[in-house]
Simulated scan of single mutants.
Amino acid sequence: MESKDLRVSDAEREHVGELLQRAVGQGMLSLGEFTERMDTVLAAKTRGDLNQVLVDLPGIQIRPEFQDQYLPGMPQQHYPAPTTGAFPATGQGAPALIKGRVSSVERKGPWHVPPAIALDTVASSVTLDFTEAVMQTQVVRIDVNDYLSSITILLPAEATADVNGVENVASSVSSKVRGGPPYGPLHLIVTGKVRCGSVNVTHPLSTRMRKFFNGN
């Protein structure tokens, strides 16, 4: 079997995505081209699928450990183990997917919130407003896989949040709400990875103003 026909791991897809980010920063790719190629990367199954997004980018090279790890004849146990995702098996099914590509993504009003959400976005403006949402569970998990997006999460007054599980690469991740264990109507756990983007967990302006005038 030729190396181009060998399967690739999530780690290799992520590495190629970082190379494409570098190409954008160096002016070799436009934002539209980056988005198209990232769609190819996320759907890639073989080395050949990944190579096609890099062949015309001079000076952009895959790190040696990724070049060498899929040599023909290598025993299967030497392959990197695939990632299993951020959500443990809870018996409540797979997380609901919210996806955006160079777009505006918004959830607000009385929308029905599942126990787990997978947020997959590229160069998008995202607002998830939980202030009037219909909750199925007290604890909601959001796993973020993002490139170049601005993500705002609005929580009701008594909600708590934990963003310590978010890995940020040249990004900003902040929470202006109380942390700690869940005690109110909603506890949000945010995990995943943000690249060249931002995540801001906060209360709506009206809630922040009330807290300010009440001395909280």
Rank of each mutant, 00 (worst) to 15 (best):
V41Y: 02
T90P: 00
L155G: 02
R208P: 07
V122H: 10
Q136L: 09
I153A: 09
N216G: 13
G179R: 01
R22C: 10
G48N: 04
I117D: 07
P58E: 06
S124P: 00
R63L: 15
M74P: 06
I62G: 03
E132R: 10
A81D: 13
S30Y: 00
A86M: 11
P156F: 00
S125A: 15
G100H: 02
R13F: 04
L71E: 15
N200D: 15
D10S: 09
R7E: 07
E158K: 11
A94F: 09
Q138M: 09
N216D: 15
A116E: 12
T160F: 00
G73K: 03
T127M: 13
P110E: 02
L29N: 04
T40N: 09
E106L: 10
A123W: 01
G180Y: 01
Q92S: 11
E18D: 15
V113W: 00
V201F: 08
Q77H: 15
Q67V: 11
E14L: 10
V140R: 02
L186D: 05
G165E: 09
M74N: 06
R63T: 15
D120E: 14
K108N: 15
L155R: 02
K211A: 14
Q26C: 10
R63N: 14
V113Q: 01
P204G: 06
V55T: 15
D49V: 01
T191E: 09
S3R: 13
V144L: 12
E12S: 03
S172V: 13
P185Y: 00
K211Y: 11
Q138A: 10
S198Q: 09
F66A: 08
K176G: 13
L128T: 03
V190R: 02
L97T: 11
Y183I: 12
A133E: 05
K99Y: 09
L188P: 10
V102D: 13
G85P: 05
L6H: 12
V105N: 07
A118M: 11
T46G: 01
E33Y: 03
A86T: 08
E12I: 04
R7K: 11
A86I: 03
K108L: 08
D68T: 13
L42K: 10
G184A: 02
L128D: 03
A159T: 00
V24S: 03
T207E: 14
V126E: 04
S9N: 06
A116Y: 00
H15L: 04
G17R: 01
R47W: 06
T207L: 08
L31G: 15
S150P: 02
G85H: 00
Q26K: 14
C196S: 15
H187L: 05
K45Q: 15
E18K: 08
V194G: 08
P185R: 09
V53A: 03
L97Y: 09
Q77N: 13
L29T: 06
T83L: 14
M28K: 14
L186T: 06
T152E: 13
V122R: 06
E2R: 13
P204N: 05
K211F: 12
S104P: 02
H15N: 06
A23H: 04
R208M: 11
P64H: 03
S149Q: 05
G100S: 09
V55P: 08
L154S: 07
G25R: 11
V194L: 06
E106Y: 01
D146A: 14
V173L: 04
L119A: 02
N51C: 08
R210E: 14
